[in-house]
Amino acid sequence: MVKLSSSAELSQFLTSVERRAYKHAIYAVRDDHAALDIVQDAMIKLAEKYGDKPAEELPMLFQRILQNTIRDYYRRQKVRSAWVSLFSGLQSRHDDEEFDPLDVLEDSENQSTPAAPEASLQQRQIIALIEDALGNLPARQREAFLLRYWEGLDTNETAAAMGCTEGSVKTHCSRAVHALSVSLKAKGVELP
C-alpha cells in the first residue's frame, strides 16, 4: 500500500510551489488577478482530484494541471476578445490592470523602501528584463523553457506535462534559449 499524502503534506507541498506557480502564470498571462485565479484553480484541482495521491506524485501532477489551467485561460481569452470586439461597451472593465515590466523597472528605481537584501537594484532590473523577454516568447516555448530548465524536469517529463513529444520539447527549448539570448543581448543585458 502506497502512503497517501496527508493534509499536512499537501499543505507543505503547495506552500513550496505556490510562488513559482504564480510566476509561471504571470509570465504566461501578464495579469496578476488572472495569475492568482489560475494558481488557485490549479491548487483546487490538485486537492480535489489528486489529494489522495502519494506525496511524491504531487509535483508532476501539479505541473501538468498548472499548464493545462494556463492553456484553458488562453482559450477563454481568445473567445472573450472576439466578444469584446463585437460589443465592447457591455464588457465590464475591471480586469485591465496589465502587467507591465516597465512599471516594475520604474518602481524599483523610484522605490522609497530599500530593495530586498537578497536582490540588488541591478539584479531587479535584469530580472524585469528577463521576465519581459520571457513574456514575449511564444506560449509553448516559454512553457518548455520553464518546465525543463526552471523546474528541472527531464525532456520526457516535460513532454508529459505539456502533452507533446520529446522532440518538440527539444525544439521549443532550443528556440526559447536562442530567442532569449537574442532579446537580452539586444537590451544589453549581461548575466552575472
Partner: peptide, 22 residues
C-alpha cells in the same frame, strides 16, 4: 553571431524573483 545564454543563469534569477513578491 549570438552565443546562447546559459539557461541556468536565467533560472537562478527567476528563483531570486520569487523572493520579491509583494
Amino acid at each position: 553571431m549570438i552565443t546562447n545564454l546559459d539557461p541556468e543563469k536565467i533560472t537562478r534569477l527567476l528563483t531570486l524573483s520569487t523572493g520579491q513578491l509583494d
